[in-house]
Simulated assay, not measured.
Amino acid sequence: MASATIPRRLLLGMALAAPALLSRRAHAAGEVIVRTPGGTYDDVMRRVVYDPFTRETGIEVRPVAATAAKLLAMFRAGNVELDLIDTGDHQLMRLERMGALAPIAYDSWTRSKPEDINPEVKLSHRVGNFVYASVLGYSTEHFGANPPASWKDFWDAGRFPGPRMLTDMAAGSASLEFALLADGVPRDKLYPIDIDRALRVMDRIRPQIRRFWDTGALSGQMLSDKEVVAGSIWNGRLQVLIDRGAKLGYTWNEHMIQVQALGVFKDARNVEGAQKLIDFMMQPAVQAEYAKPLIYGPTNKQSFPLLSAEERERMPGGEQSLRTGFYQNIEWWEDNRDRVSRTWSRWVQR
């Protein structure tokens, strides 16, 4: 009778083949390629989202950098190299209007509950994964105990002197909302924006504007280097500087809430995997965990109870934030972007 013992050489061959077999299984489980902002954001997401998602599902996650122009070019060329897009809401709206995005599969969620997501950011073809805010930041060293507390104060260079900064259109949108707030327009009456009125108000403060910034890094550098003493800046960018000891502060009064969102290319290679990753990312505990280091606000309402009072105070999107701030109307901006860009270009070059 033949022996049932497996030959030693066969056992050795099976052992050597095991890593390759595991690799093929991981590949078979799929890979989701994600467009992300890069840098520290990728480090946080790798630790909090991507690696835990891979351990739970077997689906690998590969983040890549891609500009808005590249995303548009991919779709127009019919050569979609990405599955999930993690970017500013206005860029996703542009892609949605072009017919580039698949609907968000809310009905297939098993980890997150769609009803827990803030209705402001839960849309048919995109869903916000966090919110950030443009706030009025200032030098505490320069202003002491009497800093500007509103955009009306910011526009009052007599009471609050010193060089200033505001956003340029290259940063996504110019600070037209803040100009109208300075001119007495209520937060709930900002849209549709009266462009001519906003620019007339801008005329009054322009002599004090050292520069219109086009990147978050530049805005932080201008404040920390004392090139300016006040200006609009993203809350997370400013909070990092404050945590490092910079003599800076900000007010939540009249801040503008903006959205980072997720969308899926409808022609993506792994639509199903991308939808699963969205479901994973929107869980209350997961959102709370990545909100802490990023200093941006969760969009799942059940995340806030998982944060400390101090952590909630540092983030937009909570109850206090909704009482003192407003959501930027990106639909208006996308409808009027070309017109504003042409008008802004003429105005800023005068």
Rank of each mutant, 00 (worst) to 15 (best):
G128V: 03
I59M: 12
D225L: 10
Y250A: 03
I117C: 01
G236C: 10
T57H: 01
L241W: 03
Y138V: 04
Q258I: 14
V80A: 00
D168Q: 09
A105I: 02
D42I: 14
R25I: 12
S139C: 06
A274M: 01
W333N: 09
S139H: 01
E272D: 15
I233M: 13
L71Q: 09
T5F: 00
N235K: 07
V259F: 05
L12Q: 13
K122N: 04
R204I: 10
R46A: 14
G162F: 06
A179T: 01
T251E: 06
L21R: 08
L322P: 00
Y132W: 14
T67A: 09
E310G: 11
K292L: 09
H90R: 13
R47G: 14
K70M: 12
A68Q: 14
L223K: 02
S345A: 15
V44E: 10
V121S: 05
A133P: 03
R76F: 13
K152P: 09
L10M: 06
D153P: 13
K247I: 07
S150K: 06
D153N: 15
L190F: 07
D89M: 09
I193H: 07
D279V: 06
E334F: 08
W344N: 05
P298M: 06
M315Y: 02
A145N: 15
R25F: 10
M165L: 12
G184K: 07
A291M: 05
G88H: 15
R62V: 15
L101F: 13
S134D: 13
P161A: 04
D183N: 07
A145S: 13
M165W: 02
E310N: 07
Q287F: 09
T67F: 00
L10V: 12
A309W: 04
A198L: 07
R197F: 02
I6D: 00
A105H: 13
I257W: 11
S303R: 04
T343H: 06
E115T: 15
F160H: 04
R111C: 06
L190E: 01
V135N: 00
L307V: 11
S124I: 08
S219T: 14
A149D: 11
G78K: 05
N118L: 12
I33G: 00
V348S: 13
A230L: 01
G297W: 00
A182T: 00
L95P: 00
Q275E: 01
G317Q: 02
I33L: 12
F326T: 11
R55T: 12
M14F: 12
A157C: 15
A102H: 09
T54F: 14
K152M: 10
S175Q: 00
I242R: 10
P52R: 09
S175G: 11
V61N: 08
R206A: 10
T343V: 12
N253W: 13
D335W: 06
K247V: 09
A179E: 11
F160S: 04
A291W: 01
I205R: 01
L307W: 05
N79Q: 11
E56I: 06
H125E: 05
